[in-house]
């Protein structure tokens, strides 16, 4: 097809409001409050520098998983319900979870680096290090690849491994998240869990900083 088209698909600055359209610039209430005093970048753009940089730990939402936090299913809407050991079936797909601070009733959903993958395997299949930080066979890994920060979203039951969708790094969940394939330079970060009345509780911070370790 080859034809002439005029005056189409051209969003004037006044219409497009720069890069931040209603659908693509989903500024949450929390972010909006933070960004309210920031400088507008260019007259036709609503994107603010402060929106575009992660600012770990400036409030309870952004704060990394903390000892004593409960866990909630990231996909469940409505009032936060702490996950129990019994909510995690053995040998099933990982559950994506977020830390939950009961004192302030805050789900720590301000950073994607807070996403955790919960799995449950027979205790005897885990190595000593992994077993030591599991609660009744339930253990937690960072959901963010150490290579380029992509989501470690794929569960490979045959390998008992988690795989990153960007560059196919694999991490052995039975062996402290060690790299078994792909370009990831280091193990998948983990934290320890304990069970309190059947509820899952975070018992240690991440063993290393989650996300990509970028050289240079």
């Amino acid at each position: 097809m080859a034809q002439k088209e005029k005056d189409i698909v051209v969003a004037r600055p006044s219409e497009s409001a720069g890069a931040c359209t209603a659908h693509s610039c989903d500024i949450s209430r929390r972010t909006f409050v933070r960004a309210a005093g920031s400088v507008l970048i260019g007259s036709s753009s609503l994107l603010r520098l402060s929106d575009l940089h992660a600012d770990e730990g400036t409030n309870a939402h952004d704060q990394r998983p903390t000892i004593g936090d409960r866990l909630v299913n990231a996909a469940t809407e409505g009032a936060p319900t702490p996950l129990k050991v019994s909510d995690i079936p053995e040998n099933s797909n990982p559950i994506i979870a977020l830390p939950y601070d009961t004192a302030s009733n805050t789900v720590r959903d301000g950073s994607r680096l807070n996403k955790l993958l919960l799995l449950r395997l027979p205790v005897e299949s885990l190595d000593a290090e992994t077993r030591a930080r599991a609660a009744d066979g339930v253990f937690a890994y960072s959901a963010t690849c150490t290579h380029q920060g992509c989501e470690v979203s794929q569960w490979l039951p045959a390998d008992q491994a988690l795989m990153c969708f960007c560059h196919f790094s694999k991490f052995d969940v039975r062996a402290a998240g060690s790299v078994t394939a792909g370009p990831a330079p280091s193990n998948l970060p983990y934290l320890s869990l304990r069970s309190e009345g059947g509820e899952l509780v975070i018992a240690s911070a991440f063993n290393t900083k989650p996300g990509a370790k970028r050289s240079g």
Binding site: L113, G149, C166
Partner: peptide
């Protein structure tokens, strides 16, 4: 400076 949270496909 690259945001910590950035994923680079």
């Amino acid at each position: 400076t690259i945001p910590d949270e950035l994923q680079q496909l």
